[in-house]
Amino acid sequence: MYQSAKFWDKVADKYAAAPIRNEAAYNATLDRVRAVLNASDTVLELGCGTGTTAIALAPDVSHIIATDVSEAMLAKGRDKARDQHVANIDFVQADAKDAPEGPFDAVLAFNLLHLIEDMDSALADIAKRTKPGGVFVSKTFCMPERRNMIWWFIQLGLPVMQAIGKAPYFARLSITDLDAAITRAGFTIVDTQMAPGKDPRRTVFARRTE
């Protein structure tokens, strides 16, 4: 995954400046995540980007370790946390394999799994870092079932952008692929939701099998 760090370092400024596309839906997802967290929890977030989600959830837990492969993204997260006086987050450069071992009460991976080439290996590493009975929450892009514009872009346009260094690795996952991989890793899926409208991202709430 570190091979994509240069790509994310280059786009960090643009990424940080981009507004949340559907803020109401984002906040609704955060509320659902808060419902499965406790004030005493220690949390690991993988692929934290510039720390927006970690900072939003920090008041609801004891401590968060927010990781990303991009040091440029992490630097922006540290700045935002400092500016917002959030002190219970550590920003650490890491991927799923070499992230702090924990184990953690909760592991979060938003907009990440479809960017990992060996997802099964990453999910195995995530399971090792989740306490028995602990929660794993992910939001993942899944291929639209119908061949709409998004589908055609991923099939035809994305390979061109990847070839010129303008896009990272991007897995063509189906909903069935995603759910099966999470289950194989030793999690029991307890709830799911699709993003509203034409947004094809799937949020999965799962617990590590005790």
Score class of each variant (00 low, 15 high):
residue 32 R to A: 15
residue 34 R to N: 11
residue 35 A to Y: 04
residue 36 V to H: 11
residue 36 V to G: 01
residue 37 L to V: 13
residue 38 N to T: 13
residue 39 A to Q: 10
residue 39 A to Y: 11
residue 41 D to M: 05
residue 46 L to S: 12
residue 51 G to D: 03
residue 53 T to L: 10
residue 57 L to E: 03
residue 57 L to K: 04
residue 57 L to R: 01
residue 58 A to S: 13
residue 62 S to R: 14
residue 63 H to P: 08
residue 63 H to D: 09
residue 64 I to T: 09
residue 65 I to A: 07
residue 67 T to D: 08
residue 68 D to Y: 01
residue 69 V to I: 15
residue 73 M to Y: 06
residue 75 A to C: 07
residue 76 K to D: 02
residue 82 R to A: 15
residue 83 D to Y: 07
residue 83 D to E: 14
residue 85 H to I: 02
residue 90 D to Q: 10
residue 91 F to E: 06
residue 94 A to V: 00
residue 97 K to N: 10
residue 99 A to G: 01
residue 99 A to N: 06
residue 101 E to F: 02
residue 102 G to D: 07
residue 103 P to N: 07
residue 103 P to K: 05
residue 109 A to F: 00
residue 110 F to M: 11
residue 110 F to V: 12
residue 111 N to D: 12
residue 112 L to C: 14
residue 114 H to N: 09
residue 115 L to A: 10
residue 115 L to I: 09
residue 118 D to M: 05
residue 120 D to H: 10
residue 120 D to V: 03
residue 120 D to K: 10
residue 122 A to G: 01
residue 123 L to Q: 06
residue 123 L to Y: 00
residue 124 A to D: 15
residue 124 A to C: 03
residue 125 D to G: 03
residue 126 I to Q: 02
residue 132 P to D: 10
residue 133 G to E: 04
residue 135 V to E: 06
residue 138 S to L: 10
residue 140 T to F: 04
residue 143 M to K: 14
residue 144 P to G: 07
residue 146 R to F: 09
residue 147 R to E: 15
residue 149 M to C: 04
residue 149 M to N: 08
residue 153 F to T: 06
residue 154 I to C: 15
residue 156 L to M: 09
residue 157 G to A: 09
residue 159 P to V: 06
residue 159 P to S: 09
residue 160 V to C: 00
residue 160 V to P: 00
residue 161 M to V: 03
residue 162 Q to V: 04
residue 163 A to R: 13
residue 165 G to K: 05
residue 167 A to H: 12
residue 168 P to C: 03
residue 168 P to K: 04
residue 168 P to Q: 07
residue 168 P to S: 02
